[in-house]
Simulated assay, not measured.
Amino acid sequence: MIIHKSNNVTVFQSAVFQLNTTVVATEDLILVVDPGYLPYEIEQIRIYVDKIKDDRPIYLFFTHSDFDHIVGYGAFPDAKTIASEQFVTNNLKGSQLQAAINYDDEFYIVRPYQLEYPRIDFMIKEDGEQFQVGKTLFNFHYAFGHNHDGLIVTVESENLAIVGDYLSDIEFPFVYFSFEQYGRTLKTLKSIFEKNSERTLITSHGTVTSDQSQITKRISDSYEYLEFVKIQGSGEQFEQFMEEKKYIFSTIFRKRHQDNIMVYERECEHS
């Protein structure tokens, strides 16, 4: 379903993981970000893109390589693809693809194309790298911490920041890679919104917002959770934390929290 629509920006949300797919239409191109998840949902996104594209090229951007973000690749064989260099060289690409295949098998999902790991046309190799098509300018920033190959993109003409699996209002930070790097990404995000308070935040899971006080709160909540893990908050403390922050998906979030503690402990052992 569509959860956000402005003049040139449409955000579709999947029933699975509340995964957001962003479609940005500029005079130069159509940008599609992380198309997902269920086949019917991806089909509707594709139909919408075909309806509005005219003769503009399609660019498909992957914020990172988690399996839920790459399953729509096969629906856009005509698109030019963008991702980080780390996405391309990712030594976990086999396991990410297998996770997508396993999910489809578990829930009997049949797709009209074979799942495969995306092949990338344009690699972003540096933090702060720019990419321009006509008058449309993209700025890319490293977004490591959640995983090791994430990117944030700002679309300057639309005052957009598309941030991947950061600053969600429905989940606390999931730190699969590094707490230290996650903190750096939060600093990057804080800077992005301080430099331009007119930006709209599009996170990969949850709601879209242009409310700067809400964006500031999401950044603060993320920092607070990282500190909570560092003091090994668990049990009743964690239940109170979830209630206070209104995180409702408690069963899976308890597991994610324990996983985060394990990642933090491993990171401390190797520091």
Rank of each mutant, 00 (worst) to 15 (best):
V71W: 07
F179W: 02
Q13T: 09
V153G: 04
S6F: 03
R254C: 00
N102C: 06
Y59R: 06
Q240I: 05
E116S: 15
E158A: 07
V32M: 06
D28K: 04
E158D: 07
K187Y: 04
L115M: 03
R46K: 15
G206I: 06
N147R: 02
P39G: 01
I170A: 02
F131N: 02
N20P: 05
K246D: 14
N102G: 01
V88E: 05
D104Q: 00
I215A: 13
R56G: 09
Q86M: 14
P173S: 07
R254F: 09
K125D: 04
F172G: 12
E27H: 14
S178Q: 07
I70V: 13
F144W: 11
T185G: 02
P35F: 05
H205M: 06
T136M: 03
T209V: 02
N139Q: 09
N196R: 01
V155F: 06
E198S: 15
D54M: 07
I3R: 09
D50C: 04
H4V: 01
V23N: 05
E267P: 13
Y37N: 12
Y247W: 13
V11F: 11
Q132R: 15
I124K: 10
F138I: 05
D105F: 00
V11Q: 11
Q86D: 14
Y103D: 06
H257C: 07
N7F: 01
S84T: 06
D50Y: 11
V16E: 11
T22L: 09
H69T: 03
K217Q: 12
E106P: 04
P77F: 02
I252Q: 06
F138E: 03
D149P: 04
P35N: 11
Q114Y: 00
D104G: 11
Y117I: 05
K5D: 07
N159R: 13
S210W: 00
V23Y: 06
V153P: 01
K5H: 14
V49D: 07
N91L: 11
R184E: 13
E265I: 06
N20E: 07
G150T: 05
Y142Q: 13
I2P: 09
T63S: 15
E126K: 15
V49W: 08
K80S: 10
A75W: 13
R184Q: 09
T26M: 08
S6Y: 01
H4L: 12
